[in-house]
Design a binder for these strands. Sequence first.
DNA 1: TTGACATATTCCGATATGGGAATATAATCG
DNA 2: CGATTATATTCCCATATCGGAATATGTCAA
Lengths: 117, 117
Amino acid sequence: MARAATTTDAFNAVAEPRRRDILDALAAGERPVNDLVRLLDLPQPQVSKHLRVLREVGVVDVRDAGRQRLYRLNGHALKPIHDWVRNYEQLWSERFEQLDVVLEDLKRKEQGDGGDE
Amino acid sequence: MARAATTTDAFNAVAEPRRRDILDALAAGERPVNDLVRLLDLPQPQVSKHLRVLREVGVVDVRDAGRQRLYRLNGHALKPIHDWVRNYEQLWSERFEQLDVVLEDLKRKEQGDGGDE
DNA sequence: TTGACATATTCCGATATGGGAATATAATCG
DNA sequence: CGATTATATTCCCATATCGGAATATGTCAA
């Protein structure tokens, strides 16, 4: 097998920076494809292809509006990513770094206890 | 160009579920490779390969210990993912969903105001 | 209908992938 | 030293990718 398809997951879909850019642009609200083309300065077919991937993973929804297709963010599909990475948040939070300092202190004290050195 | 290398980003590195499993296992603390092999029930070469990717992206660190190599999580490298996805958190938070209800109410009222219907 | 606009799909090529299997490197033990 | 343990690397292959270019589909307007 090769690398998992981009349409497997939100994780895989969002690994592509252009697709994150698209989502960031859609955060402001529903937009037609050409809006995104202008905003991101990408060829239209590329944008359509990226949108297809995002749609297949459920992170965007589409709505027909005359000859336009309005894309809208569906944040729910990003929740698994958030839920996963959230477990590591403490590893860089300030409070945790403070805790680190305290633990270092304790360790040093403990060692001081053991010997007379 | 093809898809971005897995070693480009934390985003790309972490798109592979086995690599997330490895990180989850390392969350409990430093571990030698064979521990991971047993825990994840994967062939040892695979684990080593995944670890290489994770190392290149900086999400794990290694330390030599005799004939073992102890891998340790480096959460900081995951912060960009957290920072990005965090902006969307409100889209599925309960408070936001409550707000949605309120906004719907307002809209309905407004429409009721406009006409006599 | 014909034309203009908006979007989607298809074909192409270069590339990196993850898995399997085999093997290489490195460190320790007797 | 040779044997064993722990880990890393290499080779092979099937596959999906992104980008570019061209083209297809769909919708409105005159």
